[in-house]
């Protein structure tokens, strides 16, 4: 996270200009579509479209590579874990069995390998659009966008408060934890047994929680004094006006969603196995 506690990268591309609510709708539709299917022939094109969109937003690789690496590492571990625990699961869902390795407690089948690849691509196809949303939407627009798509404004504002105070609390956490370490209380590796480390963690968490409770009181006073919650709705300084692009994108998303549902209802798009 940057110093300002936000992942947002300032630029002027189509996705930066788009309204946050429109982007939220795209993200939601994309997620639902991915959830509907289990077919690698859908996920690969989705992933590629996502990558093209991501490239068009011209985000510096340096800033997003951590997320991408996390995703790749997750997929490797998740795949290995699945292969180890349920090496024949792919055969169960595809109905055919092609043994490639006898593991003793079970057999590893080719179908499972395809299944694991499908699953990984499923996760991968969600990544570009989420990254795009995170990095092109300024946090000030997040709350107003959530409110626009129907989240009650008080809940949406809680998001805003969380984003606002995470960096402050992070700094506080670091300070407290440093002061505790100087007194010999650490919770990192090599700082005693697991139970000692957990105990030390509580020692750091208690002052952090106490000061958070104090913070809650101050902030809610400040908000009351400036009229928060006066009406049943509120407006947003950072709200943007919807442009033609926004409407086009939303309409397209909705069409895709309906088409996807229709297709799925007819029975297409379940686990696909090439042989």
């Amino acid at each position: 996270m940057s110093k300002a506690g936000m992942l947002y990268i300032d630029s002027d591309t189509l996705f930066h200009r788009m309204d946050g609510a429109a982007k939220l709708i795209v993200l939601a539709v994309w997620t639902v579509v991915v959830f509907l299917f289990q077919d690698i022939r859908i996920f690969v094109p989705l992933f590629l479209i996502g990558i093209i969109m991501l490239l068009s937003a011209k985000l510096p690789w340096k800033r997003i590579r951590l997320l991408v690496w996390l995703m790749i590492v997750f997929n490797i571990f998740n795949s290995l874990f699945t292969l180890a625990i349920t090496p024949a699961y792919g055969s169960e869902v595809s109905g055919s069995t092609t043994v490639i390795l006898d593991l003793g407690y079970n057999v590893l089948t080719l179908e499972t390998v395809v299944y694991v690849l499908t699953l990984s691509m499923k996760y991968m196809s969600l990544m570009p659009i989420t990254v795009l949303f995170i990095y092109t939407t300024h946090p000030t627009r997040l709350a107003s966008s959530l409110n626009r798509v129907g989240v009650p404004y008080k809940v949406a504002y809680a998001f805003s408060i969380a984003f606002r105070y995470i960096p402050d609390m992070q700094a506080e956490f670091r300070n407290i934890s440093n002061a505790m370490q100087a007194r010999g209380l650490g919770f990192g590796k090599g700082e005693g047994t697991l139970s000692q480390r957990l105990k030390h963690f509580v020692s750091i968490a208690i002052p952090l929680v106490q000061s958070s409770l104090h913070r809650i009181e101050t902030i809610s006073n400040a908000m009351d004094l400036r009229g928060f919650g006066k009406h049943s709705k509120r407006t947003w300084y950072s709200a943007t006006v919807w442009h033609r692009e926004d409407y086009i994108v939303i309409v397209t998303s909705l069409i895709v969603l309906i088409a996807a549902i229709a297709w799925r209802v007819q029975g297409y798009g379940t686990f696909w196995y090439p042989y």
């Binding site: 936000m6 300024h138 000030t140 606002r164 908000m223 928060f228 919650g229 006066k230 407006t235 950072s238």
Partner: peptide, 15 residues
Amino acid sequence: IGLSVGEDVAFAFEN
């Protein structure tokens, strides 16, 4: 409370 200077000044107007 706001996430930017302008937004914070506008807080009362928003409400």
